[in-house]
Design a protein around this nucleic acid. Structure first.
Lengths: 321, 321
DNA sequence: ATCTCGCGGTTAAACGTTTTAACACTCGGG
DNA sequence: CCCGAGTGTTAAAACGTTTAACCGCGAGAT
């Protein structure tokens, strides 16, 4: 590996000169600077990570702590994080800990800290339940941000989709298509979606909503309420629902309409062709990285970032009435 | 951040002593060693990544160059790599470049090299088409291994599923279920699977095989050949095939059986319930990391690792005859 | 002639770790 | 009393980069 010293020796100048020349310092003459740059290019000089890090304290490494990459939703976010980071010559140090075991989470965190990450993007809701770990991050002066998860307004910075708006979008689409009896699925982790659903439906005096917790209730509920539409809290869940309904002889969308959330790749497949609310997946990752960069630049950017969702019309919502 | 110097000052010994004590050198007295360790634990000392790296030349970082994380297949591999690496206190530096643009690939590679990765796992077939990049790796003395891709026996180390065996497994399962006219799908990237299919089928004089390249040919071919079974080169492809066949009024598995490859999570879903050949996904990642570790330890491990596939029986292969 | 200033560069220190050579001390044997 | 060996510790160098402080020199101002 070629170092500053090699270049300096070759050119008969000091290492300081070479360093400054390469970083474009105005204190180095044009002549010298160009000779240095030429030779550096020729020799394929790459600044040494350790030397630079030791001096600057920066590693150009961003940690990314994910629950699981399996969900293609996460994969997109992580890819976006990597792409954005790479633009600034940053790399991403990826780790996952699906489990709820605090020990494993802590080990992963310590491992990352031991590599001197400059910042951390957390795409793992579990972490919010371990204040000790977040305190550890603060002590280590590592800026972090939750990505795609609120973690219940505990004051930690986050970037998420505006789920309430997404919920309204879904409900409004059903209302616009004539549905008046709508079943909305409850989920603890994303209750804002439900909140949006209900807010929108309850605006219309002639429409009524009903919250359900368990897929098994659905067939009964559909009959009882004469419901014509279902709002699922996610695409995955919607697909499970469609399967169950078909099993019970209830057709989608002929008998009942359904709308998902997330816009996974799966939703676009012809087998499902699911109408859904899309999240700006890439933008979630990008915004998270940008937040970290701002913090690293010494700024105090907004730390509650909401991204707008959008409706994707496909084949599971039918016009009625 | 607490450093060796802090501990040394506190204890009134030299930094060298502290360093050796923590690494368990026999040259340090038992008394001193335990005092050092106690204080280090108390202060939460973490060896500095840069200092250590500068001295040792090792970063405890393993690069992982993926084509895309979207495929859940890749995600599992990358997760396994991370888990295995973490056991040895290594972290994974993840990067992806789906594109076929050499420039982007090269940038990602240089970015990783600039972080002084100790080894690289390549899960991106495209890279094998750029010998210049691999030469770059060799020059930088970074051990690497292809994971899950052969890249056509160019002498690069790899760990892959024994696709020929997998192909035989698929064909034998169909033969065992009475199928005698079998359509096998061609794919350039995984032709060993096809080779295995044909080898097995051609063993049986009363069975016949036919290779097809395009899904559109299928309905005609099924009629012409009176074929009762199809071997797809992947699960994703099998699912596409099932959809197309159903569109054309051909039922699976009543009219025609089909078998996939990979055993994606998707294949297990009730909508598809696909009989398939499973790859040892986690083991692919683990073996890759172990190879790197062996190389780092100065050994010369086997560099053509084949992992055994296995049959997963589900609902898309019917007994005939 | 002297002072000042800007230019173009050099020197040296600092970041944290590891390792080797050297050093001090003790003790047993000659 | 000296030598050698063994034990426990220190001092110093090295890894590569960055930067504050310094230095020499010529030009222009005083």
């Amino acid at each position: 590996m070629v170092s500053l010293k090699d270049i300096a020796r070759e050119l008969g100048v000091s290492v300081g000169t070479v360093s400054m020349a390469l970083r474009g310092s105005p204190r180095i003459g044009r002549e010298t600077a160009s000779r240095v740059k030429a030779l550096a290019g020729e020799l394929g000089y790459i600044p040494n990570h350790f030397g630079r890090g030791l001096r600057s304290g920066r590693s150009a490494l961003i940690g990314c702590l994910v629950s699981s990459l399996q969900a293609s939703f996460m994969a997109t976010i992580v890819e976006a994080i990597g792409a954005r980071a790479a633009e600034a010559q940053y790399s991403v140090l990826a780790a996952w800990s699906d489990g709820r075991r605090e020990k494993m989470l802590q080990d992963q965190l310590e491992l990352m800290l031991s590599k001197n990450i400059d910042g951390l993007v957390i795409t793992n809701p579990v972490l919010a339940q371990h204040p000790a770990l977040l305190a550890r991050l603060n002590r280590a002066q590592v800026p972090f941000i939750f990505c795609s998860y609120h973690c219940g307004d505990q004051g930690y910075p986050f970037v998420v989709t505006d789920d309430e708006a997404g919920g309204r979008l879904a409900a409004r689409h059903l209302l616009d298509n004539g549905h008046r009896a709508i079943l909305c699925e409850f989920s603890h982790s994303v209750e804002r979606r439900l909140k949006g659903n209900l807010a929108e439906i309850n605006c219309r005096p002639d429409a009524r909503s009903c919250v359900f917790h368990d897929l098994e209730e659905l067939p009964v509920l559909i009959a009882e309420q004469r419901a014509t539409a279902i709002v699922s809290y996610s695409d995955m869940r919607a697909i499970d629902t469609i399967y169950l309904l078909r099993q019970r002889g209830i057709r989608v969308p002929e008998d009942v309409s359904i709308i998902g959330y997330d816009d996974l790749d799966l939703a676009a497949r012809p087998e499902f062709n699911l109408t859904t609310i899309a999240q700006q997946r890439k933008q979630l990752g990008i915004a998270a990285v940008d937040y970290i960069f701002e913090r690293l630049g010494g700024n105090a950017p907004a730390d509650r970032i909401l991204l707008a969702p959008s409706l994707v019309e496909r084949g599971t919502v039918r016009r009625v009435g």
